[in-house]
């Protein structure tokens, strides 16, 4: 289905690396070391000042995420690249199941099918069923974070960017999320920021270490940790 692998990211403050298709790259480093900024540049929520980030798309095309047009970015956000923010950007007046179903509705999938799929994710993420039709603004941090992850996974993205997806989770919920991320389609490339090194050991193929807004190292978890 996906033709090309290999994404190369090179850029600001001497950060250069490439990620192969299907690989899980973890980014670690202390707070303020530039991890989130790096990830947001990949999603174009932040604009990079210099450098390039080459994304090898579904159709075999290569686009530079730093210079692509807004419409090109919106198209790959809709179809290929997912982003899980640290905090759920709550969509007001929308119940949890619809928050998760929304990306499918955008693709033209019917409301019933989209809600079925969304409910499946809620169940797998162990969100209590009586919360499915509640507003996520009333949820705990950990519940919101799982809704956020479900909203990203339901798109079946080719590239998934994760900004501390387990930071608000207790050990049991963390294990559920780690299990789900491990179970994601092997063609999905993931780049994630983590503080919990045991999660990094479980998930990552390679690790980038950020320090003082520069890249301080890259290697396998065995080499780095």
């Amino acid at each position: 289905m996906h033709v090309l692998g290999g994404k190369k990211i090179k850029g600001f403050e001497d950060v250069s690396f490439s990620v192969k298709r299907g690989e899980f790259l973890a980014i670690i480093g202390s707070s303020g070391s530039g991890k989130s900024s790096l990830l947001k540049c990949m999603y174009r929520t932040y604009l990079a000042d210099s450098g390039s980030m080459l994304y090898h798309g579904d159709s075999g095309s290569v686009i530079d995420l730093t210079t692509a047009s807004d419409h090109e970015i919106l198209a790959i956000r809709r179809n290929e690249v997912g982003y899980v923010s640290q905090l759920l950007q709550v969509v007001p007046r929308t119940i949890a199941v619809d928050v998760i179903a929304e990306p499918l509705l955008q693709r033209g999938i019917g409301i019933d099918d989209a809600r079925d799929a969304a409910s499946g994710y809620l169940a797998r993420l162990r969100i209590p069923e009586d919360l499915w039709d509640a507003y996520p603004s009333t949820f705990s941090g950990g519940e919101r974070q799982r809704v956020n992850i479900a909203r990203a996974l339901i798109r079946a993205p080719r590239l998934l960017l994760l900004d501390e997806p387990t930071s608000a989770l207790d050990p049991a919920s963390t294990a559920v999320v780690v299990g789900m991320l491990r179970g994601v389609n092997p063609g999905t490339t993931m780049i994630g920021i983590f503080h919990d090194l045991s999660v990094v050991r479980e998930l990552a193929d390679r690790v980038v270490v950020m320090k003082d807004n520069r890249m301080a190292g890259i290697g396998t978890p065995e080499e780095i940790l």
Partner: peptide, 13 residues
């Protein structure tokens, strides 16, 4: 300025 709304709000130029 023209941009993606999240970029305008989070990284205004």
């Amino acid at each position: 300025e023209t941009g993606l709304t999240d970029q305008i709000l989070e990284d205004p130029q």
